[in-house]
Design a binder for these strands. Structure first.
Lengths: 175, 175
DNA sequence: TGAACTGTACCGTCTGGACGGTATAGTTGA
DNA sequence: TCAACTATACCGTCCAGACGGTACAGTTCA
């Protein structure tokens, strides 16, 4: 196991996420995932004996990334709110991709994915609420973040959205 | 076309939407749609010769509902903002179902569905902006609506979210 | 030391079922 | 009579998953 390269296992999870994000869950077949990762189907099934376990592994990796993100948010230089809003718009990061992939699966009524997303959201909200000391404001900012994220993932993001949000939050003395 | 009952055509579109919303696009097969609507598969294909035309008809019906909704919003008794926020949370209405169904399809990278959703959003934004005379505020409120909608459709809506948003918007003298 | 063996990491093929769509013959009610 | 269906059979394709290999790096032990 050389530490220098991305492992086959990770490459398979990357490929699964990429297909979910760029083409939807219908297109994320085992064959397609294997091809995207340049691995044979047999190789994929060696690492993940079923599609279900592929999903589980993806969500597990997402949870790890989410916990790390909440920590970075709490310690962010310009404060948690600015960090949260900036990271709510899609940067093309691994974390964004994992998040969007999980949302795709959640929409197929997968309770595991729904639970993972809920836990991530709870983590962010805890930081916002702790920092602001104001539940109404924390909830509202979280909704704005959700809106930014939703617009991005549905491909209809308004470029100036973040600028407008900042202007309004300044009126509320939050930024 | 008797006005007293829902036509078979409408029942088929209803069934298609219901399956998309409750089980995701993978589950919305032609067989499943026909069964949900209590129509034979042949009957379904009589009305919609292909799945593509079923999608087109659904989006067309959505656009009609959307235009009517924007009109109601502009003329709402308590103002467009209150109307917009209230209708951003899922009421289980036909319109909500159609909207969510279209979002499901849009996420499978269907450009028709994406365009339909974009047009709906543009309609709402025009009303918000006209009423508020403030682009930053209009964009922010639209983002909050998007957030409310997103949370509902991913099954993790916070019950008190609307109340909190109202409190914050009052501080901004919007409500 | 080196033959026998073990475990890990794959590859390529096959099967059974589901899905979209076609076809066609028959039924029902205005 | 004719539009609006029902019912059933079928076809080609795609997909999840099972299966039987292969390659090869270590380990064991006589």
């Amino acid at each position: 196991m050389p530490a220098t390269e991305r492992s086959t296992r990770d490459r398979l999870l990357d490929a699964f996420e990429t297909l979910l994000v760029t083409a939807g869950s219908r297109a994320a077949t085992l064959d397609a995932v294997a091809a995207e990762a340049d691995v044979s189907k047999g190789g994929l099934l060696y690492h993940f004996p079923s599609k279900d376990e592929l999903v589980d592994a993806m969500l597990e990796r997402l949870r790890e990334m989410g916990a790390a993100d909440a920590e970075r948010m709490a310690a962010a230089k310009n404060g948690p709110v600015a960090y949260y809003l900036e990271t709510s718009v899609n940067n093309g990061s691994d974390f964004d991709r994992a998040l969007t992939a999980a949302a795709r699966i959640a929409q197929e009524n997968d309770s595991r994915a729904g639970a993972a997303l809920a836990d991530l959201r709870d983590g962010w909200f805890a930081v916002l609420r702790e920092h602001l000391g104001d539940e109404a404001l924390a909830r509202t900012i979280q909704l704005i973040g959700d809106g930014l994220y939703f617009d991005d993932t549905t491909g209809l993001a308004e470029k100036s959205a973040l600028k407008h949000v900042r202007a309004v939050l300044k009126r509320l003395d939050v930024l």
